[in-house]
C-alpha cells in the first residue's frame, strides 16, 4: 500500500472526543461521522480534507474512549494514513482491526508541517516528505499486526481460521 497526500498536523494527546465528539455517536454511519471528524479540534478539517491526505500528530494520538467511530470517521473522511509519535492503546488496536493504516515515527512528526506532501509506503514503512526532501523509516509494524493486515483485518482472519 502506497499513499501520497497533504499533511494535517496536530498536537499531543488528541483524544477521541476531538476526533469524533460523543454528541454524534448516536449513529455509526461512516459518512455521517466523517462530516464531524476533528470538529472540536479543527472545524475546517471535514470540509477541506482531500482524499488521500495524511494526519501527522504528536504523542498519544487517539487517547480516551474505545469508540471505533474515531478511526472509522478518519478513514471515511478520506485520510489515507495517520503518522504519530505514539498511539493510545485502544485506538491502535481499533485501527488495525478496521483497516486504518497507522505508523509511528518521531522524525516524520518532528519535520512535517501542515500542507507538506508525504509519500508513505506501508509495506516498507518508508516515509518521504516530498516538500522538504526528507526520507525516514517508521518503527516496524509488529509481525503479528502485519499478519492481521494481510488477512484483511480481524474479522476476515477469524473467517479464514474457520472461526464461524
Amino acid at each position: 500500500m502506497k499513499f501520497t497526500g497533504n499533511v494535517w498536523k496536530y498536537g499531543a494527546d488528541i483524544d477521541t472526543d476531538r476526533i469524533i465528539p460523543a454528541r454524534y455517536l448516536n449513529t455509526s454511519d461512516p459518512l455521517e461521522l466523517a462530516k464531524h471528524c476533528m470538529e472540536d479540534e479543527d472545524p475546517a478539517f471535514a470540509s477541506r480534507v482531500q482524499q488521500g491526505d495524511i494526519i501527522v500528530a504528536e504523542k498519544n494520538f487517539g487517547c480516551g474512549s474505545s469508540r471505533e467511530h474515531a478511526p472509522i470517521a478518519i478513514k471515511a473522511a478520506g485520510i489515507s494514513c495517520v503518522i504519530a509519535r505514539s498511539f493510545a492503546r485502544i485506538f491502535y488496536r481499533n485501527s488495525f482491526n478496521m483497516g486504518l493504516p497507522i505508523l509511528e515515527s518521531d522524525e516524520a512528526v518532528d519535520t512535517a508541517s501542515r500542507g507538506d506532501v508525504l509519500e508513505v509506503d506501508m509495506d516498507s514503512g518508508k516515509i518521504h516528505n516530498v516538500t522538504k526532501g526528507l526520507r525516514f523509516k517508521a518503527r516496524p509494524v509488529p509481525p503479528f499486526m502485519q499478519e492481521l493486515i494481510k488477512a484483511g483485518g480481524l474479522m476476515e482472519s477469524i473467517r479464514k481460521r474457520g472461526g464461524i
Binding site: 474505545s66 485502544i90 488496536r93 481499533n94 478496521m98 480481524l154 474479522m155 477469524i158 472461526g163
Partner: peptide
C-alpha cells in the same frame, strides 16, 4: 477496554 471489532470477535 477494546473496540467494537474486538467485541465482535469475542462474541463469535
Amino acid at each position: 477496554g477494546v473496540g467494537s471489532t474486538d467485541l465482535a470477535a469475542v462474541m463469535i
